[in-house]
Design a protein around this nucleic acid. Structure first.
Lengths: 210, 210
DNA sequence: AGCAAAATCAAGCAGCTGTTTGAGTTCTGT
DNA sequence: ACAGAACTCAAACAGCTGCTTGATTTTGCT
C-alpha cells in the first residue's frame, strides 16, 4: 500500500493529543492557569497521565499550547472582521466588528465561549513566553488604531490606542464576569444593541473634553 | 488595675490576626483564590500554620475575611465619593467620582492597589457566600444609576445599569491587567485625563443610536 | 512471522497541600 | 503563688500535585 495510507497509530495519537488540548482549554477557561490539574485534564480527556508528558512534555507546555491555540483563533477572527470593514462605515460599525467574535461567542456559549474565556484570562495573567503571538497581537491593535484614527480625527494615536485597549478590556471582562452570563441569556440582538453604543461611546470619548 | 488595661495576650493575638489578613490579601491580589497557599501566607506574616486555624478556622475562612474587608473598603469609598457629587455636575464629574477610588489606588500602588486587585478578582470569581455585602453592592449601583439617570435622559434604567456595570468592569480590568501597570507609570493627571472621557463616553453611548 | 516504532498503561516517586494534635509559653485574675 | 485562659509552636496526618519508569499493547513495514 502507499505510504500515504492512514496510519492508525498516529491518528489515535492525534486524537488523544487533541482531546488533551480540548480538556485543558475547557479547564483553563473555567479556573485559570493556577486552577488547572493534570489528573483533571486526563480524566476529562479519557487519557493516561503520562500521555501529557508524552505528547507535550509537561502540563505547562500543554497549557501553553492550549492558550496559544485559543489566542490565535481569536486574533485571526478579529483581524479578519475589522479588515473587512467598508471604508464608508462609521464608529459603530467598527465597534461591532471589533466586538464581533466575542459577542458571537457569548451568544453561542459552549466551546467558543471557553476559547474566549481563555483569551480573556491571558489578558490578566500573560504566560511568560508568548513570543510567537505578540506580533499578531500588536498587528491587530495597530489595524484598529488606523481604522479608528480615520473615523475620529483630532485625537492623538496614543490616546486612541488607550481607548482600544479599554474596549478590549471591557470585552474580556464581559466574557469572564457573571454579567456576561446574564447578558448571554438575552437575545443576541440586544447584546449588540446594548454593547455597541457603549464601545462606540468609549471610542469617541467625551465630546467637550479634549 | 482597671479591667480596661492593655491585655498583652489579646493584643499580640490581634497583631498576628491582622498580619495574616494582610498577607492573605496581598497574595489574593497577586494570584487569586486558586493560587493562594497556607504556608505562603504564614511565612509572609511570620506566623505558625496553626495560627490560621486558631484565628479563622480555615484557610478559606481567612480568604473570605480578607475579601470581605477589601470589598467593604472599596464600596464605602465609592459610595461616599458618588454621594458627595454636586447636583449641578456633569457626566464627566460622575465618571471621575465613580472611578476615583480605583484611579487613586492605581496611582498610589502598594496595599491600596492590592485591595483593588482583590476586589476586581472577586468580580470574576465571586465567593459562594458574600451575602452580607450584596446589599451594599447593589446600593452602590442603584445610587449611580440614579445619578446617571438625572444626567442622561431618554435612556431606560436597565440600559443605564448595563453601562454602569460595563464601566465597573473596565475599571476592574485596568486594575488587574498589565495595561493598568503601564498606566500607573504615567502621571496621575494623565490617568484621569485619558480615562474619564472613556467612561463618560461609555455612559453616554452613541449619540445617533437610540 | 518477526522486528521496531508508536502509543498506552499502572505503579510509584518526592514534594507540596490544608488541617489536626498535644505540648509548650505567656500572660491575667484571684 | 497558683489556676487557667490566650496564644504559639513543631510534628505529624492523609490526600493531592506533576512527573517518571518500565512493562505492555497496538500497529506498520519487511
Amino acid at each position: 500500500m502507499a505510504t500515504e495510507r492512514t496510519d492508525q497509530r498516529r491518528e489515535a495519537g492525534q486524537r488523544t493529543r487533541d482531546g488533551l488540548l480540548a480538556a485543558a482549554q475547557e479547564l483553563l477557561a473555567r479556573r485559570g492557569q493556577e486552577g488547572v490539574t493534570l489528573r483533571e485534564i486526563t480524566d476529562r480527556a479519557g487519557a493516561n497521565v503520562s500521555a501529557v508528558s508524552y505528547h507535550f512534555g509537561s502540563l505547562k507546555a500543554l497549557c501553553d499550547s492550549a492558550i496559544e491555540n485559543a489566542l490565535e483563533r481569536y486574533l485571526d477572527a478579529q483581524i479578519d472582521e475589522v479588515a473587512s470593514l467598508d471604508t464608508a462605515s462609521g464608529v459603530e460599525d467598527l465597534a461591532a466588528a471589533f466586538a464581533g467574535p466575542m459577542m458571537r461567542a457569548l451568544a453561542a456559549g459552549g466551546q467558543d465561549l471557553a476559547v474566549m474565556r481563555t483569551v480573556a484570562r491571558v489578558g490578566i495573567d500573560p504566560p511568560e513566553g508568548w513570543g510567537r503571538l505578540t506580533a499578531k497581537f500588536q498587528q491587530s491593535r495597530r489595524d484598529v488604531v488606523r481604522q479608528l484614527s480615520a473615523r475620529i480625527p483630532g485625537v492623538e494615536e496614543r490616546e486612541l490606542d488607550f481607548r482600544i485597549r479599554c474596549a478590549a478590556g471591557l470585552l474580556n471582562w464581559l466574557v469572564l464576569a457573571p454579567i456576561g452570563t446574564e447578558l448571554a441569556a438575552e437575545p443576541p440582538e440586544q447584546i449588540e444593541r446594548w454593547l455597541v453604543p457603549v464601545l462606540a461611546g468609549a471610542f469617541r470619548g467625551s465630546p467637550n473634553v479634549g
